Simulated scan of single mutants.
Amino acid sequence: MTLIRVAGVPVRFRASWFLISAAIVALFGPQVQRIFPELGALAYLVALGYAVLLMVSVLAHELAHALAARSFGWPTTEIELNLWGGHTEFLAHRATPAKSLAVSLAGPAANLVIAGLGFYLSGALELTGVTAMLVQVTVLVNFFVGIFNLLPGLPLDGGRIVESAVWAATGNQDRGMRAAGWAGRVVVVLLLAGLAAVVISGAREVSLVVVVVTVMVSFFLWQGASETVRVANARLGRAR
């Protein structure tokens, strides 16, 4: 359903977004209670703040994509927030490798700017208590979202780096898509291999939540990368 419009762009919230928000409240509510026992049940309201901050961070990411696309005259049809974060739909006219790359990198850039501002304010204002914790959460969430999305493989934004490089070198966007899709598969393999190495070595304790989330995200990324490869191969086959 569409609940709001931002900069003239409709923002659609899928039911899965509310499910992940509820999971965040259930997961982090007890954690906040342990840190601030004086809050009592209000700790769950603070945990709801976590979910709201995540929503704002993802929305800022997607809005940056939309505004960058608009700067090239590409109309944005909608922003969708869902279980896996968000997605921006826009119509790219006369796309080039440079324009495609600029639109894709605008999202991570927005998150890193927010993280930087939050880090600066947390030191400059000497915040304490719940406020300090929420600012720290904002910094960490935006830093993670920004850096993670820069990994060089589709469907992550950083995959456009690979796509644009191959596209510019070959003059064929579909070849760039296929290369970026395969790069996305490599990212998934490295992500799971890294997780397995940490768990097996026992060098540091890894919570079950981290393992489950990593596996779920890897599954989503593999699906996206594989679909990219399939579409690119189909287009290249028709062009022969």
Rank of each mutant, 00 (worst) to 15 (best):
residue 6 V to P: 00
residue 7 A to M: 09
residue 15 A to P: 07
residue 17 W to A: 09
residue 19 L to S: 04
residue 21 S to E: 10
residue 31 Q to G: 03
residue 34 R to H: 03
residue 35 I to L: 15
residue 40 G to V: 12
residue 41 A to K: 09
residue 41 A to I: 11
residue 41 A to W: 15
residue 45 L to Q: 06
residue 46 V to G: 01
residue 47 A to R: 04
residue 54 L to H: 14
residue 55 M to Q: 04
residue 58 V to Q: 06
residue 59 L to R: 08
residue 74 W to I: 04
residue 83 L to V: 11
residue 92 A to L: 11
residue 94 R to P: 12
residue 95 A to C: 13
residue 96 T to R: 09
residue 103 V to T: 05
residue 107 G to L: 02
residue 120 Y to E: 14
residue 121 L to N: 02
residue 122 S to E: 12
residue 127 L to Y: 07
residue 133 M to K: 14
residue 135 V to N: 00
residue 140 L to N: 13
residue 143 F to V: 12
residue 143 F to E: 09
residue 148 F to T: 15
residue 153 G to M: 05
residue 154 L to I: 10
residue 156 L to I: 08
residue 164 S to D: 00
residue 167 W to P: 11
residue 168 A to V: 05
residue 169 A to H: 00
residue 170 T to A: 06
residue 171 G to T: 06
residue 172 N to D: 08
residue 175 R to T: 14
residue 179 A to W: 13
residue 180 A to V: 03
residue 180 A to F: 11
residue 182 W to E: 05
residue 183 A to F: 04
residue 188 V to T: 06
residue 189 V to T: 04
residue 206 V to S: 01
residue 210 V to E: 08
residue 213 V to L: 08
residue 213 V to Y: 13
residue 214 T to V: 13
residue 216 M to F: 10
residue 219 F to I: 15
residue 232 A to N: 09
residue 235 R to Q: 09
residue 239 A to G: 07
